[in-house]
Simulated assay, not measured.
Amino acid sequence: MMNEEALGWVIRTRDPEFADWEAFTGWLEADPAHAAVYDALMAADADLAEIVPAEPVSIAVPANDAGPRGWKPMRWPKFAMAGGAVAAALAGVVSLHLMNRPDIYTVTTRPGETRTVALDDGTRVELNGGTTMRFDRRDARFAALDGGEAAFTVRHDTANPFRVTVGEAVFEDAGTVFNIVHSGSMTRIGVSEGEVIYNPKAEAIALPAGRALTHDESGLRVMDIAPDSVASWRQGRLTYANAPVAQISGDIARSLGVKLDATPGAGAMRFTGTIRLDRDPVRFFGQAAPLMGLRAVRQGDVWLLKEGDGPPR
Score class of each variant (00 low, 15 high):
A143C: 02
A144G: 08
A144F: 04
D146T: 10
D146P: 02
G147K: 13
A151H: 15
A151T: 00
T153G: 03
V154H: 11
R155H: 11
R155S: 12
H156L: 03
H156D: 04
D157Y: 08
T158E: 15
A159L: 14
A159Y: 04
N160V: 13
P161S: 03
T165P: 09
V166H: 02
V166N: 04
G167E: 09
G167Y: 00
E168K: 10
E168S: 14
V170D: 11
F171C: 04
E172S: 11
D173S: 07
T176K: 04
V177G: 06
V177P: 01
F178M: 09
I180W: 09
H182R: 14
M186W: 05
M186F: 04
I189F: 00
G190R: 04
V191G: 01
S192T: 08
E195H: 02
P200C: 05
P200I: 12
K201C: 06
A202S: 14
E203W: 01
A204R: 15
I205M: 00
I205G: 05
I205K: 03
A206W: 02
A206D: 03
A209N: 03
G210V: 09
G210P: 12
G210L: 02
G210M: 04
H215Q: 10
D216N: 15
D216Y: 01
E217V: 12
G219W: 15
R221V: 13
D228T: 09
V230N: 03
A231N: 05
S232N: 09
R234E: 02
R234Y: 09
Q235M: 07
Q235P: 02
L238S: 06
L238K: 03
T239L: 07
N242T: 06
A243T: 14
P244A: 10
V245I: 14
V245M: 06
G250C: 00
G250S: 06
D251C: 07
I252D: 08
